[in-house]
């Protein structure tokens, strides 16, 4: 994919929210979180929210790194592997007590959720999304404007 910065932001906000949101809503009830359903949803959507909000900062870094590439592209493997640092950062943040939420997460519950969201969004963005958004790939990932 050849992202522009605006395209990265659109993708991170809208597509992660929509595709990730649908997936999260489906998977939250069956996650091994040892929490009541409401709390499980709360934890799951907190994680998705963090993927999006922190992701906006990550995207700035990725865009900077992209400038070192002659093709100004972002290989699909980069999009996949970005999940490693991003997932780790959120896991570490959830483990601190300095944040305003108080969501007890299990490692299994968290990683199953994060990895599955990441893979579902990555697979969708790697091809099928073009069926619905036929102009997106030619606009650096932008959805409007």
């Amino acid at each position: 994919m050849t992202y522009s910065l605006a395209g990265r932001m659109h993708t991170r906000i809208v597509l992660f929210a929509v595709i990730g949101g649908i997936w999260t809503a489906l998977i939250a009830p069956i996650l091994p979180t040892r929490l009541p359903l409401g709390r499980s949803y709360e934890m799951s959507f907190t994680v998705l929210g963090l993927i999006i909000v922190l992701g906006l900062l990550w995207e700035l870094l990725y865009h900077l790194l992209q400038q070192y590439r002659w093709d100004k592209d972002w290989p699909t493997a980069f999009s996949l592997l970005a999940g490693v640092p991003e997932g780790t950062l959120i896991w570490l943040l959830l483990g601190t007590d300095t944040w305003f939420w108080d969501v007890p997460v299990t490692a299994r519950g968290y990683w199953l959720l994060f990895v599955s969201i990441w893979l579902v969004v990555w697979v969708a963005l790697s091809g099928p999304i073009r069926v619905l958004l036929v102009r997106r790939r030619w606009r650096g990932g932008k959805l409007f404007g």
Binding site: M1, T2, S4, L5, D71, K72, D73, W138, G140
Partner: peptide
């Protein structure tokens, strides 16, 4: 050396912009 006829981003990335 270059993979394609132009840098990839001319077909829809920051270089096209």
């Amino acid at each position: 050396y270059q993979a394609f006829d132009d840098p990839k981003a001319v077909w829809g990335g920051q270089l096209r912009d």
